[in-house]
Amino acid sequence: MSNSPSLRSYAYVLAVPDLVRTAEYFRDVLGVVPEWQDGDNWQALARDGVRVMLGHCPDALPPRDLGDHSYFAYLHVDDIDALHAELLGRGALIRQSPTDKPWGMREMALETPDGHRLMVGQEIR
């Protein structure tokens, strides 16, 4: 066993072309609550200990142009089907509905209007 400090992933930083539109999607569709805002430059949001910090970067390469490389997170959830129903009801961009995978996870894929992608998984018991 190592004496190295353990890291815990809790925050993601995303470059977004339209801060207001993207923050509204995270808030209204994904159910992420605003924490703080720095003018027109930054917006931080959180849900259940997961934080997303959105930086206004209108000249950055659009995430949609990155294709599969636009995945930024893998989140664990205790009831993926309930989360799927919640997000579907709010109009989330769902790339893949919950599906059992051979590696013991039930996963779904989401996308933001900018093209950022994230996976959500629940351990199959």
Results as ranks from 00 to 15, higher is better:
S2F: 11
S2V: 05
N3K: 10
S4P: 00
P5C: 02
S6P: 01
S6Y: 05
S6I: 13
L7K: 08
L7R: 06
S9L: 11
Y10L: 02
A11I: 11
A11S: 07
Y12V: 04
Y12Q: 11
Y12I: 01
V13W: 07
A15K: 15
V16W: 06
P17S: 14
D18T: 05
D18V: 02
D18N: 13
L19F: 14
L19W: 13
V20K: 04
R21K: 15
R21I: 12
T22M: 09
A23N: 04
A23L: 05
A23Q: 05
A23M: 04
Y25V: 11
R27S: 15
R27G: 06
R27E: 13
V29Q: 06
L30T: 10
G31R: 00
G31Y: 00
G31L: 02
V32P: 04
V33L: 03
W36F: 15
W36R: 12
Q37I: 05
Q37S: 13
Q37M: 09
G39L: 06
D40Q: 10
D40M: 07
N41K: 10
W42T: 14
A44H: 12
L45T: 12
D48N: 15
D48G: 12
R51P: 05
V52F: 09
G55L: 14
G55H: 15
H56C: 14
H56G: 10
P58Q: 07
D59M: 07
D59C: 06
A60C: 12
R64K: 15
R64M: 13
R64F: 08
R64G: 11
D65K: 05
L66K: 08
G67W: 01
D68I: 08
H69T: 08
H69K: 07
H69E: 15
Y71T: 03
Y71P: 00
Y71I: 04
Y71D: 04
F72W: 05
F72H: 05
Y74F: 12
L75T: 09
D78W: 03
D78E: 13
D78V: 09
D79E: 07
D81C: 07
D81K: 00
D81L: 00
A82C: 13
L83A: 12
L83V: 10
H84D: 14
H84K: 01
A85E: 09
A85W: 03
E86G: 02
E86Q: 15
L87Y: 12
L88I: 08
G89R: 02
A92E: 13
L93A: 09
L93M: 13
L93S: 07
R95F: 02
R95H: 10
Q96M: 15
Q96F: 02
S97K: 14
P98M: 10
T99G: 09
D100F: 09
P102N: 11
P102R: 03
P102S: 12
W103R: 00
G104R: 02
E107Y: 01
E107G: 03
E107Q: 14
M108Q: 01
A109L: 01
A109M: 01
L110Q: 08
L110I: 05
E111D: 02
E111A: 07
T112W: 01
P113R: 03
P113I: 09
D114R: 09
H116L: 08
H116Q: 09
H116P: 04
R117P: 01
L118Q: 09
L118M: 15
V120L: 08
V120N: 06
V120I: 15
G121K: 00
Q122K: 00
Q122P: 04
E123M: 11
